[in-house]
Design a protein around this nucleic acid. Sequence first.
RNA 1: GCGGCAGUAAUUCAGUGGUAGAAUGUCAGCUUCCCAAGCUGGACGUCGCGGGUUCAAGUCCCGUCUGCCGCUCCA
Length: 495
Amino acid sequence: MSKAANNDVIEKIISLSKRRGFVFQSSEIYGGLNGCWDYGPHGVELLKNIKEEWWKFMTYREDVEGLDASILMHPKVWEASGHVENFTDPMVDCKQCKSRFRLDVLSDQVNEKKKKKAVEALKESLKENAVLVNKIDSINSGADENENFEKLLTDQETGTYLLAELNCPMCGNKGTFTAARQFNLMFKTFIGPVEDSGAVVYLRPETAQGIYVNFLNVQGASRQKLPFGIAQIGKAFRNEINTKNFLFRTREFEQMEMQFFVKPADDKKWYDYWKAERLNWYTSLGMTGVKLRYHDHPKDKLAHYAKEATDIEYQFPFGWGEIEGIHNRTNFDLNRHEEYSGKSLKYFDEESKEKFVPFIIETSAGASRSFMAFLVDAYYEEEVNGEQRSVLKFHQKLAPVKAAILPLVNKDGMPEIARGIEKDLRRNFKVFYDDKGAIGRRYRRQDEIGTPYCITIDTQTLEDKTVTVRERDSMNQVRVSNDKLSEYLLKKLND
RNA sequence: GCGGCAGUAAUUCAGUGGUAGAAUGUCAGCUUCCCAAGCUGGACGUCGCGGGUUCAAGUCCCGUCUGCCGCUCCA
C-alpha cells in the first residue's frame, strides 16, 4: 500500500471516530488541546471492554491480585524510581543540523580557549546590562573554570546569551541553537491550594510504582507466596516532547500493568512465560497475527532498570508501533525503595528459609494504544452488490454494541414486538433500537460501529414468533425463536 | 522542538478581494418485506482563533492554536 493510502486509512478512521462517537478531540470548541482526546459513547464502551478482557485474563487466576493505587504519590517515590533524575535534563537543538545536546554535555565539548573567548564576547554583548555582567563575574569567580562555564550555560539568564556565542559541535555553525529547555517529562502539581515548592507532587508517569510500594501490603493481605503478580489499570501522564499519530502518543494515557514477583533464579522462566501469554491475549481477541511481532531490545539499549526487555508491536498504517512492553526489571525498583524509604521490602521464603528482594517481570500494556490497534485492525472497506460498506470487525467481546433490534417496517405491530425484544435483551446486553430508514441503511449503520448481530422483526415474526439474526461479517441470516434469543446471543458472544 | 502541508456545515470537499456552496449524513413525514432505494419538507456556518491591509477579506499579510507528514525525542 502506498504512503498516501496509508494516511487515508488513519484519516478515515479519525473521521469515522468523530462521526459515530468513538473519539473526539479534547476541548474541540476551544480549538483543541494538543495530544488530548476524549472517548465518545462507543469509544468508552470499546475501551471498557478492552480493559475488562485484560482484567479477566490477568487477574482471574490464582497467582495475580488486583490493585488500584492513587495517581498522586509521595514525591520520594519518583526520586527512588529514577524519574526525577532522568526526566529533567536541559537540552538544546541545533536549528541547522538538527542535532540535540544535553547542556552539560555541550559544555564538555567546548575547548577552554573557546570558552574564554565566548565569555568575553558574552560580556561585550551585555555590557549595557550591568546586573548581568555582575552576575557573570560572580559566577566566573569560582575556582574551576569548566564548572564556571557550565554554570553560565545552564543559568536561565546568561545561558541564552552564551548559547548564541557557541558553535555547534556537529555542524560548526554559530548561533544556531534553540533556547535551552527543561525536558521535565513529569507533570508537576501542588498538594494544597497554595503553590508552595515544599508541596510539589507529580502525576505518576507510570502505574508500576504504585504496585511496588504496595508489594508487601498486597502479599500480606492476600497471603500470596512467590511467584505471584499484582495487576492495575490506571491513568499515567508524561509531558511528551511531541504528541503524534492520533491516540498513539498522548500526554495522558491509560496503562494496564501487571508486575510479577519471582525468585531471582526463576526470572528467565517467567519472562518467557509472560512474553508468550501477552501476545496470545491480542490474538485471542481477534487481532491479526501477522500484524503483531516482538521487538527484543538489544542489551546495550536497555533501560537502567532492565535486564531483558521486549516490545509487542502492532503494524499500524504509519508503521510498527509498541503497544506493550515486557521487562525483566530485576530487583532494581524494590532495592531503590528500600534505600529511599528505609523500610525492608524483602520476602521470606519458608521453604528455603531465605530472605531476599524478589525480581520483577513487568507486563505493561497501553490501554489507549491497544484501543487504537483494535480499532485500526477491525477496519475494513468492502464491496457489497456494487456498493461500498465500511465495517468494524471487532471481536464480539470488544464490540461496543452487541446487537441492534430492527423492525423491518414501522407497521403491522412490528415496532411493538421489537420494543418487547429490546426490553428483554437490554437487561443483559448493550443493545441499540433503530427504526429509522430502510433496512439496508440500518444494517450499514451497525456495520460501521461494529455491531456483531442485527435482529430483524418481519412478517414471519407475526406468524411464528421467530426473528432473523444477521451476522455482521458474513451478512448471513438465521431464524431464531423470540424466546431463545437471549440464550442464542449469550452463546455467540461468549464463544 | 525544527521543517513541510493543511484547517470552510456532523463528514468529505468546492469557493477568481464583492450576497457562503455541493455531495453525503442527520431530523420530520410519506413510501418501503432484508443490505447506504425513492419522494416532500426541515435544521445545521464564530469560514480554527487574534491582529493587519482594503471602501470591502473565507480569499492578501503577520502572529497564534490544532491536525497530518518528515526529522528529533520516547529514561
